[in-house]
Nucleic acid binder design. Structure first.
Lengths: 230, 230
DNA sequence: ATTTCTCCGATTGTTCAACAATCCGACGAT
DNA sequence: ATCGTCGGATTGTTGAACAATCGGAGAAAT
């Protein structure tokens, strides 16, 4: 260890970190930009990301791009093939089941724990957001409302770690299933489910809410498996 | 996207990746070395890690150390304070509860799903490993046997993603609770619990196994909260 | 014609050196 | 004792360089 009073220094540091104006590093901004392009479907699974190309496209150093790649690789959005380069992650055999296994674990656990009224209200808000998007025939909005819904469910647990796990899983799904969102009525069928789950949650019937959510996830996995070959 | 046949290339790449002799990059080895020192308790929470120092200590470039830091930061073992440096992660208010929230979610979910006989056998093996360590008065071994036990439980689900999440959580706990392992009989009290949980699992009584495991985790959280102030 | 071999170009992995930006602590002024 | 100011130290980022490695193109061999 270094200094014995590192404790005091870090305590101050933590307070400062909360107040500091967030000025993301260049590497973070590069990663954010790439994340955006991945979510938009501009970068399709399997595509290769060349360091030098991205470096000059974004006007940053190759080393910085490299750091951004490390971030994205840690989030599984990108895969590193040593000495060959980084590629946008592709769906491999078992990945769909794997992702849904994670979702079943954390979403069901979170909803079974209930949550503060404000957090339940956030779930309700996501449901209403979905209805509004449906009324406006906004398929894009329907998709993101659905993600907000499931994000809000995990947020019930109030765990920073579960939240980041969930957001990473959702990012993976955006990447993998982008194709599916083109299907006009893909998400529409989920609206009644969300409504029902939310109602049970609001009524405090957590067991029922959990069961409904579990059934929903199982059905969703089946559909995704059907759409994608694997 | 780049090339239209990126699919074929990546398919081959995946096959090659399975067969390739794993030659970790220098950055990976640096990260591994630091992970080791963190687990050993050589680097205590709050300690500062200076890029240049580590770079020359390990005989690598500063940029490489930087990449290693990125890995560790993604695993929450280390925290980056912009322009100030990286510090070994410290336990902050709510972290204990947060970690246990994650464990409850994924461990209970995994055990509720049962698992193949081989995977159940792995859980049993971890229990026996713990008994042997207890008989030999090997406290260090007791601690790692306990971690193997919980790792084996998560492995029941057969999910790569859950496995890596769990291994990261366990790494965090090793870091945070290193102090506790000094307490001679800290883990010993858990042996009967592990035995009981494992027996229920082997008997196929998954509900009971889940309940026992949940109770165990709740008790464990209480104890950790009692030992550490926060 | 298909396979194998060899070589070349392109890209990655890693290092090094430099510089601006930032932070921390010490010193000094009020 | 409080407040500025300054200087040293460390990080953030860049640019260039070089070895290692990979993939493909073409030549050679069957």
């Amino acid at each position: 260890m270094t200094t014995p009073d590192a404790a005091a220094g870090s305590a101050l540091g933590a307070a400062a970190a909360r107040l500091r104006v967030a000025v993301p590093s260049v590497a973070d901004r590069v990663a954010a930009e790439l994340r955006l392009q991945l979510a938009e479907g501009l970068l399709l699974p399997g595509a290769r990301l060349t360091e030098s190309t991205i470096a000059e496209d974004l006007g940053v150093s190759r080393n910085t791009v490299r750091e951004a790649f490390a971030e994205l690789a840690a989030e599984r959005l990108v895969v590193r093939h040593p000495n060959r380069g980084v590629f946008v992650a592709r769906l491999e055999a078992g990945d769909i089941h794997d992702v849904y296994t994670v979702r079943r674990a954390i979403e069901v656990s979170a909803i079974r724990g209930g949550g503060s009224p404000e957090r339940v209200a956030a779930v309700r808000a996501a449901v209403e957001e979905g209805k509004a998007a449906a009324a406006a025939n906004d398929e894009e909005g329907l998709g993101s409302a659905n993600q907000h819904f499931h994000g809000a469910i995990v947020a019930l647990a109030g765990s920073r770690r579960l939240d980041t796990i969930m957001s990473q899983v959702l990012a993976e799904m955006r990447l993998f299933f982008h194709k599916a969102t083109v299907d006009a009525h893909f998400y529409r069928g989920y609206l009644p489910d969300n409504e029902e789950i939310c109602t049970a949650l609001e009524a405090g019937d957590l067991d029922r809410a959990g069961e409904l959510l579990l059934a929903y996830l199982n059905r969703s996995e089946e559909r995704q498996a059907a759409v994608h070959g694997a």
